[in-house]
Every structure is written in structure tokens, then in C-alpha cells.
Write a protein that binds this DNA or RNA. Structure first.
Lengths: 118, 118
DNA sequence: CATACATATTCGGAGTTTCGAATATACTAG
DNA sequence: CTAGTATATTCGAAACTCCGAATATGTATG
């Protein structure tokens, strides 16, 4: 695979590598929202939101549209939502693994079961 | 969506937010490889590879298995490969967009077409 | 024009990531 | 135990990310 493609992918990941930016993308899942609405829902500083939006724009994850006083943001490509959905499933799978591991550990020590639990 | 899930996702993205780490994951796509093999194929410093592998381990993207002298790495969950595949499609879609935009720009200036091109 | 509102940019400091060089650990063979 | 090979960790410098405070830009309204 080409180096360009790897750099491109890593830039997208970089763009999504912050909880606030994930939150933004998820808020935009149902359609466009103004910067102001995003700020309100995220409950963060205006400047900070604007900076995160700048990152998302730079990495081509969102596009913006000016309407008078306001700027509306939307996700550039549905593929990114697919990616987030896959990770959601992944997250729950990992959770299950962890739970099962804990169960195994618990049942491997029947002599002391539930005793040292807190 | 929960904060934990957002943090989890952003950690995975963080883990993949480097071209070398993307390259590693893609080399592991067909199955496990030893650290040595990875270093050889990546053509980077041993220490650097080891550091990137540590990041991938920390973010739970790969798992490692010791066999004698060597350590074999593999991808922890196929879901991540799916993610990369989606981004590949995304990449080509973006490329097409760019090409089309350039075409449009070219055809919107018919008077000077091909003249100022370099 | 002046004022107000929405959004973006710049700045500086704290924290994090990246790299190669050096060093440490861990396993294997003799 | 010794030497060799494979891998991981530590260190320090440069580059980058993140945040809030301050400031700038752009548009609408009177």
C-alpha cells in the first residue's frame, strides 16, 4: 500500500483522536448543526470548540457552510459514521471479553469465592 | 453516548494516528508476524518499531505472544481491518472528488484553457 | 456609520509524541 | 556461566497538541 494512503489514513485517525471531536462527529450524525449549537451541546469554551472544528476541517472530516451570521457543519462522508459504528461494536466486544475474563478468574478460585470481593 | 465510549474510541484512533502504526496493522492483516519480521519490512530502527508496538499494545490494538526468543504480534480484532477498508474506499472517493473539482475548474475557464497550465 | 452577535485566529504555557542513541532484559546455545 | 540474538525500555531534544484568555474577522441591524 502506498505511503500517501497511509499518511492519509493516519491523518483521519489523528483528526478523530480526541473525545471532543468524536462527540462533534456524533452530534453531526443526524445532519448539519451550527457552530453555536455544537458549543451549546458540548458545553465547552467557544474558542476550544472552534479549534476542534478547525482540526476536523483541516483533516477533511467535516465541511462547513456559511449562512449569514452562522456557520453550519456537517460530516463530509458517511463512511466515517460507519467507522464509528464498527468501533462501538468493538467496544462492547472488548467489554464482554473483560467480563468473561473476570468470571473465569472468579471461578478458578472457588475456595475463596466472593470473599475477597469489594 | 457515554463518555467512556468516546474516550475509548479516541484512544483507538490515537493508536492508529501514525503512518508507521498503520503500516504495522496492515502487515498483520494476513496473520501474525514476529517483531523482527515487522522491523525488516518496515525498514525502521529497531527501537522505533518497538516503541510503536508498545503503543499498539497499550491501546489494545494488537496482542503479542512470546515464542522462545521472539515475540509474535497479531491484530486483536478483525473489526479494525474493516475500519481500514472503509477508509480505503473513503480515500478513493476523496481522490475522485478532487479530480472532478480540478476538471470543473479547468472547464470553467475555456478561454484560457491549457494555456497557463504548468 | 456604530453596535452587537457568531465564529475564527493567535498566543503562551503545560503536557504529550516522536525519534535515535544508549542501555536493559530475556531467552538460547554452547 | 558466557556469548549471542531478539526485543523492550529509558533518555533527552525537537516537534506537536491542547487549553483558556485575548483579540480579530465577518455579518446583521439600527
Amino acid at each position: 500500500m502506498s505511503d500517501a494512503l497511509r499518511r492519509f489514513k493516519s491523518e483521519i485517525f489523528q483528526g478523530l483522536a480526541h473525545p471532543t471531536r468524536i462527540a462533534i462527529v456524533e452530534l453531526l450524525r443526524e445532519g448539519e448543526l451550527s457552530a453555536g449549537t455544537l458549543i451549546e451541546k458540548l458545553r465547552i469554551e467557544q474558542a476550544n470548540a472552534s479549534q476542534h472544528l478547525a482540526v476536523l476541517r483541516a483533516k477533511q472530516i467535516v465541511v462547513s457552510r456559511k449562512a449569514g451570521n452562522q456557520v453550519y457543519y456537517s460530516i463530509r462522508d458517511r463512511a466515517l459514521i460507519e467507522v464509528l459504528d464498527i468501533l462501538r461494536r468493538y467496544f462492547y466486544a472488548q467489554l464482554d471479553n473483560t467480563v468473561n475474563m473476570l468470571r473465569e478468574v472468579a471461578s478458578e478460585r472457588p475456595k475463596s469465592r466472593m470473599r475477597t470481593h469489594r
